[in-house]
Design a protein around this nucleic acid. Structure first.
Lengths: 288, 288
DNA sequence: CTGTTAGCGCCTTCAC
DNA sequence: GTGAAGGCGCTAACAG
C-alpha cells in the first residue's frame, strides 16, 4: 500500500534551500525583514520544486489570527439572504479573508450556538445577518475580543455597528412614489409580527400614510403565503389598488397571485417592495 | 485603557482544577483514557467557571484535522445554488463540521483559486458545486490527500463522486407529463450553450421528443432574459403551447413574461422546469 | 543580512 | 488513575 505522503513543511524547504526556517518564512511572507536577493531566489526555487503550501493552521496558532470571518445567516435559501451572503463573501475575499458560513434558521438558540462554534474556531471577526429578535450575540463576541457587525438587523440593546437600509426613508419614498401616481390610499403588507426591520417599516408606513393609509395586510414571509392572500383578496374584490410590501418574497407572491387570477398589473395594482433582491426589480414590473 | 484579556487555555483550567493538562484534555474529549469521577467534576466545574472554550486551531495543528469542509459554489445569489448551499451546510453541521464557503462566480480560474485557498486552510474535505466546464479540481484536492465530491455537475474526465439529478429521467418524465395533457409538440428552453447538466437535459429532450419535438429556445440563465424572450415570442404569436425549461430561473422568467403580456397560463401555456428550487413549485402553477 | 530558539494551545506517548 | 514532556508548523524575539 502506498504511504500517505506527509505534507511539505517550511523546514523541508529550509533544508533544501540550505537556509534557516526563519529566512524561508521571511521570503514567503515578504517580511517582516528583508532577505538577500540570492537567498530569496534559492528559497523560492526550493519552495516551487517541493510544491510547498504554507499551513494556515500553524500560522494561525502562532500569529493569533486566522484570516477567517464567520458569517451567520438566518437562511441562505431565502434569495434575499443568499444574495447578501454572496456579497459579504466577495467583499471578504477582496480583503483576503475566508468566510465560515452558518445558517441559524431563524432560531435564536441556533444563532448563539453558531457564534459559539465560530469563536472556538478563532475567527477574526463576525458578520451577523438575522431577521429579528435574538440575543446580542455581538456583545458576547466582543467579550471574547472578536469584533462583530450586524447586517440588516440589530437586536434591541445592541452596541455593535449595524449595516442596514434606512427603512424610514425607503418607506417614505415608496409611499410618495405611489401618491404621485394618483393613489391616495396606500396599503401595506408585512409579516406575522413586528420584529426586526420589518416592524420599523410598518411603523414608518403608519407614520407616513397617516389617515390616508390603506388597509394593513399580514402574511408569512413566503411567496406562497402572499400568493394565497392575493388570490383571496381578488376573489373577494378587496384587493387594494396600491400596495407596499415589507419584503421582496411577498411582493413576488402578490404578483404571482395577481397574475394567476387575471388581476391586471399594473392596471389595477401597483406594488413596491423594500428589500432590493437582485432579481426583484426585473421581471414583472413592480411599479411604473 | 483596559487590557485585552487573554483567552483562557487548557493550562488555566488545569491549574484551577488542581490537575494536569493531560487530565483536562481527557475530560474535555471524553477520552482516550478514563478519569476518576471526582476529578472529572472538578475539571468540568473549573472549565465552566472560567468559560473555557477549546481552541480549535491548536487542536487542528496537533490532530491534523480541522473539522472544516470547503464548499465552493458557482453563485450563492442564484436561488438554486443558495438553497443547495443551505442544505449542504446543514448536513455538515449535523456531522459537527464547519463550512467554509466561497463563490467562484462561474469562473474556472476563480474556482481553482478557491480550492487552492481551501487546501491551504487544511480543510478536511471539499464540496464542489459548479455549473459547467472547469478543470477537475477534485483531482487536485485528492492529490493533496483531501477527499472531494462534486454536486450538480462533474467536469469531463472526473473520477470524484458526483451527487446530481438523473437528468435523463427528469426530462423524460416532464415530456411524458405534458403529452398526457394532450401536447404533441414539446418545446425546450435552455441556456446559451450545452455545457454541464443543462447540456445533458437538452440532449435528453432531443432523444425523448424525437421528431415530435417543438422548437429549441435559448436565452441566458436569468429571469430577465427569459422574460424578454417570452414577451418577444408572444408578440410575434410564436409562443409554443408546451415548454420544458432547463432551469427554474428561466421558468420564472417565462411565467413573468406570459403574465405581463396577458398570455394565459395554464390556458395557452404549460411549463415544467427541472431544477427543483424550493420556491419554484409554489406560486404560479408551473403545470397542471 | 542571516541563523537559533522559544513558544502559540493542544494531544498523546511515556513514566509513575 | 495521574503527571511530565515532546512536538504539530510556523513566527518573532534574540543573537551573531
Amino acid at each position: 500500500m502506498k504511504r500517505t505522503t506527509r505534507a511539505v513543511t517550511l523546514t523541508d524547504v529550509a533544508r533544501r534551500a540550505g537556509a534557516s526556517t526563519a529566512v524561508v518564512s521571511y521570503v514567503i511572507n515578504n517580511g517582516p525583514r528583508p532577505v538577500a536577493a540570492a537567498t530569496r531566489e534559492r528559497v523560492l526555487a526550493a519552495a516551487a520544486e517541493l510544491n510547498y503550501r504554507p499551513n494556515r493552521v500553524a500560522r494561525a496558532l502562532r500569529s493569533r489570527t486566522t484570516g477567517v470571518v464567520g458569517l451567520v445567516l438566518a437562511d441562505a435559501a431565502n434569495p434575499y439572504f443568499g444574495a447578501l451572503a454572496r456579497h459579504v463573501e466577495q467583499a471578504l475575499e477582496e480583503r483576503d479573508k475566508l468566510t465560515l458560513t452558518g445558517n441559524a434558521g431563524y432560531s435564536a438558540d441556533r444563532q448563539r450556538h453558531l457564534v459559539e462554534r465560530f469563536l472556538a474556531a478563532q475567527v477574526d471577526g463576525l458578520v451577523i445577518v438575522s431577521a429579528d429578535g435574538g440575543a446580542d450575540v455581538a456583545a458576547e463576541a466582543e467579550t471574547a475580543g472578536v469584533p462583530a457587525v450586524y447586517v440588516h438587523h440589530r437586536p434591541e440593546p445592541g452596541r455593535a455597528p449595524l449595516v442596514g437600509a434606512d427603512d424610514d426613508a425607503a418607506v417614505r419614498a415608496a409611499v410618495a412614489h405611489l401618491r404621485t401616481h394618483g393613489h391616495r390610499h396606500v396599503a401595506f403588507l408585512t409579516g406575522p409580527d413586528d420584529a426586526g426591520p420589518v416592524g420599523r417599516r410598518h411603523a414608518a408606513w403608519q407614520a407616513t400614510a397617516g389617515a390616508a393609509a390603506g388597509p394593513l395586510l399580514r402574511c408569512a414571509y413566503s411567496q406562497a403565503a402572499a400568493d394565497e392572500l392575493t388570490r383571496d383578496l381578488v376573489a373577494r374584490d378587496a384587493m387594494p389598488p396600491a400596495l407596499v410590501t415589507a419584503t421582496d418574497e411577498q411582493a413576488v407572491g402578490v404578483l404571482a397571485g395577481a397574475c394567476a387570477t387575471g388581476h391586471p398589473v399594473p392596471g389595477r395594482l401597483a406594488v413596491i417592495s423594500l428589500d432590493g433582491t437582485p432579481t426583484a426589480p426585473t421581471p414583472p414590473p413592480l411599479s411604473r
